[in-house]
Nucleic acid binder design. Structure first.
Lengths: 237, 237
DNA sequence: CGGTGTCTTGATTCTCATCAATTACTGTGG
DNA sequence: CCACAGTAATTGATGAGAATCAAGACACCG
């Protein structure tokens, strides 16, 4: 099922910030020197605590990014799909806390060394600008999340998580395109497995979500979103 | 007490991302066209909900950045002091949620239009790169905060807030260089006024903080930090 | 001195995390 | 094909922590 090549020229990930600048003069040498990694489902892409050796771009697949806090509880920070970046922390001078990444399904990734990234960005102003905008937007989302987290109820956090997952992975045949355990959802929403289960059963009773085995469906995204909207501003995290 | 001039050449804010690139060729026209604003203590710099007309850099003063959520409760997102930026959200294409900024003391700010910022950044690669790194680091901090917020107790949140305030504003004569109401601290820490008061009295009893009227002192920052360290990774938010 | 706003403390209520026990699901080897 | 672990999901009961409510102390300002 893997594509024959991960060559940037033929890549279809138009949202990829490298691909977007593929026609800039001077970029050729960088993309020729990138390398490609395959990860089986469940494998670690970035080991928590070990230094990051560069930046990764998801070519095909699904990845979860997390970091472990107290009592071994992991907090999922975000998910990454086709075209998205991993290893953004590499730019930060000090990396005192651990962040890990695991493939949620078989995943192919493109890898650039940190040095390559640095010199590429410094020599391609529009690329640096686009990266800057990307980070600025991510910052918006993250700060909004901080604000929301502080005062949202568990129910709202879980709904928010479901909406995020829907935006990120989408649905086919009325079912989310990813299978996450209740534990994963809890770790992302910032609550516990049991609470997620309780909220999910409540939502199912209210016909706001559906369940087909482990698969979750959201029949009316706007309707579900209104559960948060009533009390908070809708967020794009 | 105001400085005679806010000219970038003579500015002493070495952490300012504009100042840092003052010697780049081509920057002259931009810094000559910036304008300067004065804000009295308590005045709004950016009105919540109204579009942002560019970027601001704090020349002298102290600013709080907040956004209002449910039941009029404001969440303070961060504070800004000399050399720091406001209006970062301006780069984001959609601005669907409100963010406001208020001067905590008499404040002088430099202002660049969004167009000026855009063309400046696109023409000065190293500047765009520095901005990108800045945003990437802010993102780190914010994401760490998301993680922490999810599982910290109120006590830990308040301590974390105090440590942040100390890092940002510093102390003189054993007292924090800023006077915030309990409400402000609560709005920043993501809890309520009453809880902040309770934690502060407990900390005072434990000799981890001091109070001189409204002024708060932290006699031993590391000692206070250890209260969080024991359970979580120390963060640089 | 009122009066307004901040700060403080106590009592109550409610939400949520934790613990414990049960049930459903998945895959494996006989 | 079925018995069997082993894991994930579910439900209920309980306790701890935090928000809310209410009342009073304190400071500041005319």
């Amino acid at each position: 099922m893997y594509p024959k090549s991960t060559d940037c020229i033929s890549c279809v990930n138009t949202s990829c910030l490298i691909k977007k600048h593929i026609s800039e003069p001077g970029i050729e040498s960088y993309i020729q020197n990138k390398d490609t990694m395959k990860c089986r489902k469940g494998q670690s892409i970035v080991i928590e605590g070990s230094p990051i050796h560069g930046m990764y771009f998801v070519h095909t697949g699904q990845v979860k990014v997390f970091s472990t806090g107290i009592n071994g509880r992991e907090q999922i920070l975000r998910f990454a799909v086709n075209g998205e970046m991993l290893g953004q922390r590499g730019f930060s001078s000090r990396q005192i806390y651990p962040v890990g990444a695991v493939a949620l399904e078989d995943t192919i990734m493109c890898h650039f060394t940190l040095d390559a990234m640095r010199s590429m960005l410094k020599s391609l102003p529009t690329m640096a600008y686009d990266f800057m905008v990307f980070y600025a937007e991510e910052l918006n989302r993250s700060e909004t999340k901080v604000r929301m987290f502080a005062h949202m109820t568990v129910r709202e956090k879980v709904i928010d998580a479901l909406l995020y997952i829907n935006r990120k992975f989408g649905q086919t045949n009325g079912v989310l395109n990813i299978q996450l355990s209740r534990r994963d959802i809890a770790d992302f929403a910032g609550t516990t497995e049991e609470q997620v289960i309780r909220v999910l059963s409540a939502l199912k009773k209210e016909k706001l979500t559906e369940s087909f085995g482990k698969k979750i469906g959201i029949p009316d995204v706007d309707l579900l979103g209104r559960e948060i909207d009533e009390h908070h501003y809708f967020i794009q995290s």
